[in-house]
Each structure stands twice: as C-alpha cells, then as structure tokens.
C-alpha cells in the first residue's frame, strides 16, 4: 500500500519528466539547422521534391501539431520509423534515394531494442569491474583515514582520473589485443568483445566509487555506534562488515544510480572507439544523419531508464536505511 503510493507518485513525476524531455528534444531538433529530408533524398534531388516529401511526412506542419501527432503514437508504444535506416540494417544513403524503399524503413523501437541489450551488457560489466576495483580500495582507505591506505586510494583515483578514456582505450587495445592478442577489441562478435571497453569504462568510474566510499566509510567509522560496538563486545569484522559497510552504502548507491544511468544512456566515446554496436554508436549515427525519430526515441527511452533507475535506487536506499522517508 505504502510502496504502491510511492510508486504511483514517482512514476507520475517520471512521466512528466519524460514528457518535458521529449518536448525539449523535439523542439530543439526542429530548430537547429540541417534538413533531414535533404539528407534523405540526397544533394542532387530538386528542391520541389524535397518540399513535397517534407510536406508528405508532416515536417512542414507547426511544431506543436507535429509534437502532438508524435506523442499520440508514442503513447501507443510506437516510436515511429527511422528516416534513414532500412529495416535490413545499414543506413540508406542519400544517393540511393528511391521512393519505393520508404515503406521498409526500420522501426525506431526495433533499432533501440537491438542495441540496448548490448549497451546493458557493457554497462553491467563496466559496473562490476568498477566495483571490483573501487570497493576494496575505497573501504580500505576509509578504514584508515589519513594513513597509507587512504593515501593509496587517493593516488589510485587521481591516476585513474588523469587517464583520458580515448587514450586509455587505444593503449589497451594496442597492448591487450594487438600485442598480446589476449582480447578482441573492435566490433562485436561475442561476449569477449565487451571486456576491453568495459575495462576502460571501469577505470573511468572507479575513482568516483573510491572517493565516495573513503569519505562515507571514514564518516561512519567515526560515529559513536561504531565506537560503542567495541565495548558492547562485537568483533572488528562484525563492526566493519555488518555495520560500517551497510551504513556507508547509501551514498554509494546514489552514485551507482547516476553512473549506471549515464552508462545506459550510451557511452558515446567508448562505443565509437571500439566500434561497439550499442546505443551510443546508434546515437552518434542518428545525430550525424539527422534521423529525428531515432534521436527522439533514444531520448525518450534514456529518460525513462533514468527515471526507473532513480526509483529503484530510492527504494533500495530506504530498504538499507529506513530513516530515509520517501
């Protein structure tokens, strides 16, 4: 009952957020220069044809009319069709302009559904790596504030932060893939192709985890219930693993929520470098091709994921710390 009311409220707020994001993206796309129809039909096509097609597609109607029509479809679960991509896959170039192919353009939802699992896989693996690196270092640093482990944590995270991700990606690809031939790097033909980009992402995320954990663990270790636990007879392990870690988890959880949302939204640079067929690559291509419906679709899905992850994080946080009233 309580949970249901919370969910109803948060989902309602989420719907408003998604609506606003859609409206913003929709308007921006139509205000910025660059005519998608010109790109679709190719530079050689006559202006009259461009206008004709544009009018036929409804692109010359007032923006609010277009938006209303679009949202109406979205509500029925239809994110529209790509301007550019045929159902088969590769983008349709302007030169191959041919009116008859327009019926076979790919559904935006299908395009997203194909790539999203790839990004999800990458994001989850990156998170796992980041936690494997960040949690031990961060907790250790937090247990000994001002001492060697704390400084090690600081050095490690400074080092990680100072590595630019595209540079690290290229270096790792050269080292592990080209020189040592341990891991494949470019494209995707199986799970092993996820490991390298995930590692690069993990190095990017780990400093945040380390920093958040050192601060929150050190803060919790300074609280009186931890001090008193000693005289109550609890062992050091019980104090650290049952109490200190649980109490430091909420800031970490919030951080993970934000990071995970960002990962799922598509990791543009990394997917581009490794030519990894995820949402990020899809987004880059969609933007370059002025593929309005696809860009809008990705924005809506990303916003929805963001909302859902936030709700999940808050639910988990209250499960960990019941004082956090929603």
């Amino acid at each position: 009952m309580f949970i249901l009311r919370f969910l109803a409220r948060r989902l309602g707020q989420g719907a408003i957020i998604i609506f606003l994001v859609s409206a913003l993206i929709f308007t921006l796309l139509r205000v910025v220069p660059g005519d998608p129809v010109r790109l679709m039909v190719g530079g050689m096509a006559p202006d009259t044809l461009v206008e004709e097609i544009a009018a036929e597609m409804g692109l010359r109607d007032p923006i609010h009319v277009q938006f209303g029509r679009y949202m109406g479809k979205v509500l029925q679960g239809d994110l529209g069709e790509s301007f550019v991509r045929p159902a088969s896959g590769a983008a349709v170039g302007g030169a191959s302009f041919d009116d008859s192919t327009r019926g076979e353009r790919a559904k935006v939802l299908d395009l997203i559904a194909e790539t999203a699992p790839m990004t999800l896989q990458l994001a989850v693996l990156a998170m796992v790596f980041a936690l494997m690196i960040g949690v031990p270092i961060g907790v250790w640093g937090g247990l000994y504030p001002g001492r060697l482990p704390d400084r090690l944590a600081l050095y490690t995270s400074s080092l990680f932060v100072s590595l630019p991700n595209f540079w690290l990606g290229i270096v790792l690809a050269l080292l592990l893939s080209v020189k040592l031939n341990l891991l494949p790097a470019i494209g995707y033909r199986g799970f092993s192709y996820t490991i390298l980009p995930a590692l690069v992402l993990a190095v990017e995320i780990a400093p945040f985890i380390i920093r958040t954990l050192t601060v929150s663990v050190a803060g919790v270790m300074g609280q009186s219930f931890i001090d008193i636990a000693k005289v109550r007879g609890l062992s050091r392990n019980q104090i650290v693993f049952r109490h200190a870690l649980k109490n430091s988890a909420v800031p970490l959880l919030n951080l993970l929520g934000v990071q995970f949302s960002m990962l799922l939204g598509g990791v543009l640079v990394i997917e581009f470098i490794f030519d990894y067929p995820g949402l990020g690559l899809l987004t880059i291509n969609a933007v370059m091709q002025r593929d309005f419906p696809l860009i809008q679709g990705i924005a809506i899905v990303t916003a929805a994921v963001f909302v859902l992850i936030n709700i999940a994080v808050d639910l988990l946080a209250t499960a960990i710390d019941p004082r956090l009233d929603y």
């Binding site: 009186s224 008193i228 005289v231 649980k246 109490n247």
Partner: peptide, 21 residues
C-alpha cells in the same frame, strides 16, 4: 570480557546503536 562480563552503558543513547538495523 567486554560486553560479556563487563558491560558499559553511556550517557548518550541517541547514537549508540546502528540506525539501519
């Protein structure tokens, strides 16, 4: 002996237990 044979209660009960359990 701590907590078993010799027990201690302090003057500030507010922060004495883990707030999440």
């Amino acid at each position: 002996l701590a907590g078993r044979e010799i027990a201690y209660v302090g003057g500030n009960p507010a922060g004495a237990l883990d707030p999440t359990m």
